[in-house]
Structures are given as C-alpha cells and as structure tokens.
Design a protein around this nucleic acid. Structure first.
Lengths: 214, 214
DNA sequence: GTCTATACCAGGATAGAC
DNA sequence: GTCTATCCTGGTATAGAC
C-alpha cells in the first residue's frame, strides 16, 4: 500500500495509530512504530497530541460522533416510519448494526481499523470500564429504551442480558480476527460485515423475543 | 488477599501471569510485575518457562485440557441420553457453556482469570489466529457436528455464522468487563456466569433455530 | 504554527556469575 | 534457585529549523 503523502501528517499519525492500536492493543504499540508507519518523526505525535494516552483517546474519539450519529439517525428514521406502536425488535437491531457497514461501503480501511479498536476496548477488562461509557452509553440507552417499548413484557434485567449477547456478537465481528474463516474453511468471511449482520439481526432478534416474550 | 506461600513458586508464577495477562494483555505486563505479584525473583520466570512468550503459552495451555475435557464429556453425556435422534440445540449449547461455570463453582479465582484470558486471545486480531486453533478447533468442530445433526436443514455457512454469534456472546461474558453492570445500573452482574448462561442458552438456541430452521 | 533532531532516563528482557 | 550486570527499548522533553 502506497504512503499517502498528500494527507496531512497529523491525520497520518491518527490513521497509523488507529490501525496499530486495533491490531496490537495499547501496550503492543510504540510511538516510534506509529511514527515510522505514518512516515513522520517520533516527536510529532507528542507535538500534536501530547502523551501516548492522549493520542489513544484522540483516535477513539475521532470517528465516534459520526458513527453514533448515523446509528441514532437510523433509529429515529425507523421510529418515525413505524408510528405510535414503535419499531419492531428487528428494525431496532437493524438500526443499531447497519451503519457499521460504513467500512465496506466507503472502502475506507480506516473505518475497519476503528471498529476493530472499539472491539478491543469493549472486550478489555482494563479499557472497557474506562473508555466505553463516555462515548457509547447515551447511544446504547436510547436503543435500550426503544427495545423496552418493543418488548413491553420484558424485565429490565432480561433486556440488558439480551443486549449483552448482541453486544458480544457484534464485538467479535468488529474484531475481525479471521477465526470464522478458518473454522468454516472459507465458507464465512470475517470481513464481510454485511453477511455478518444479515445473520446477526434475525439471530439476535429471535433471541430477544425468546427471552422477553416468553 | 494473602500471598499463598505454600503454593510452589512455579505455580505462583503461572497464577500471577494468568491474572495479569488477562487484565492487561500480553504487552501490558512485564515479567517484573509478574514476579513481584508472585513474590519471586525476576529471573525465576525465565528459569522455569524461558521467554515471556513461552510463559504466555504455558498459561494458556495449563487449563485447556481440563476445561475442554469437561465440555466434551458434557456433550457426550447429552448425546448418550438422547439416543439416535441426538440432542437438541439447547442441550448442545448447554454442554458447550455450563462447564465454564467452573470458576463460580470451585471458587477458584484462577479459573475466572483463565477464562478472561481466553476472551482476550479470542478477540485479538493478533493472538486469535495464532493461538486459538491448536487448543480449541477440535472441540468446536465436535460441537458443530452435533449442531448440524440437530439442524439438518441448515447450510454450513449458516451454522458457522450462528456459532460466531454464540462465540461472541460467550467471549464478552468471559471478558468480565463489568460493562453490563454499569449499563444496567446494577441489575446484571458480569461475574454471574450462571445468570449469563441462563439467558445465553435460550437466546442463542432461538437464534440458531430462526436462522437454520427458517 | 509545523516539524525534525537529539537527548535523557526509566524500566525491562535476558544471560551469566554465583 | 538467586542476584546482578548489561544492553536495549520506549516515552517524553527540549531546542531549534523551516
């Protein structure tokens, strides 16, 4: 892959950091490696972002608003089109997941790395509690509220456990480890988010209904 | 928690490494920290296990056979009790998951850390492809075979995508990040594996049926 | 304001002496 | 089994070039 020398160095640092943090985790990456990969001097990351941790957070923050905006918009769209009874479980999960196909649609590798970074953080006992809430709790609670309305008989705990299962399936998908490719001997592809969601939406919707409608 | 000075130092190193690797990942832990936590000299880890990577693999290997033996035994048990028609999807998933309650049952914190380590490795784009197959593929394929029998109309790809969703839900559970506790404001507890599986088994079984039985 | 060269020093992996 | 020395890597600060 050719170095994009037309992109501003500040962005190249973010891009390189995004890819490397997603693949190797926070401690698995050095600032020197990020700088080399971005084709800039070691000290430039420090100049633009301060400490390593600040860079990490800058990477995590960069695309969050755009992503969650799209998801919230999708939720509101299906809420409006469904009237007073509200959207179905399937529609809600669809709105939660489909905007994440953005990486495939735009062909922007950066999005793929970013989503893998979310998976890393969400699955980490260290980073998860420290970093997920501030960017994602508001969005999740909005979806939970919609799900409660679609499943009025469900207890709160049941809804959250179901959400946990959905979140886990999603997280492993975003991690994009290639494990399913190998297990299935090439019949499934980790990188094919569309196929993943095509299965995940009916799968998890059926799970929600089973637990929450009895 | 008091230092267990009665435990052999070699095991104390494994225990400490297990806990720290699970929490911080491979690169987030130094041999010094492991040694300090185990109450032994820095060089002793090197003496017993060689390089850091070898210690990492030793930790990952240690409990795998016991764990997967129990899961396989559970699968065979339900296969025998169900006769020629074979066990149901629920029974198969139950056999896949319930032995993982071992941490809760035995009260051995080491098991909890070990399971979190599996979650870390399985969700990692770097470690997943390098370390999961050798210890877990055989077991997984055995369960897949049973699932195919229980869902004879399903395509292979569908089975594997459903397994992927199950594996993701399980992985996030094992990671034990406390996120669900926070989101649900204390109504669900990450550490309560029994509650997690009580929901995960019917949830994922319904998903399998939806995808694989139409 | 953007960027590079360089230096500093803490901390760590490893090997070899004991 | 343990202690220590050595070499190296990495995060960060600073000075100054463009």
């Amino acid at each position: 892959m050719p170095k994009k020398t037309n992109v501003p160095k500040r962005d190249r640092i973010l891009d390189a950091a995004e890819e490397l943090f997603a693949e190797h985790g926070y401690d698995g990456v050095t600032l020197r490696r990020i700088a080399t990969s971005a084709g800039v001097d070691v000290a430039l990351a420090n100049y633009h972002f301060g400490k390593k941790l600040d860079l990490f957070q800058a990477v995590f923050n960069r695309r969050a608003e755009l992503l969650n905006g799209a998801r919230l918009e999708a939720l509101h769209a299906c809420q409006e089109s469904s009237g007073a009874k509200g959207p179905s479980v399937e529609q809600i999960i669809e709105a939660f997941l489909r905007p994440l196909e953005i990486a495939q649609e735009t062909g922007d590798e950066g999005w793929r790395h970013y989503l893998a970074l979310i998976a890393y953080i969400n699955n980490s006992p260290y980073w998860g509690p420290r970093m997920m809430s501030s960017l994602f709790d508001e969005l999740v609670q909005e979806f939970i509220k919609a799900l409660k309305k679609a499943l009025p008989k469900a207890s709160e705990a049941d809804i959250y456990w179901c959400y946990h299962n959905l979140s886990g399936a999603l997280t492993l998908t975003l991690a994009n480890t290639g494990r399913i490719d190998k297990l299935s001997r090439g019949q499934c592809h980790s990188a094919d988010f569309r196929a993943a969601y095509d299965h995940m939406i009916p799968f998890t919707a059926a799970g929600f209904r089973k637990i929450c409608e009895g």
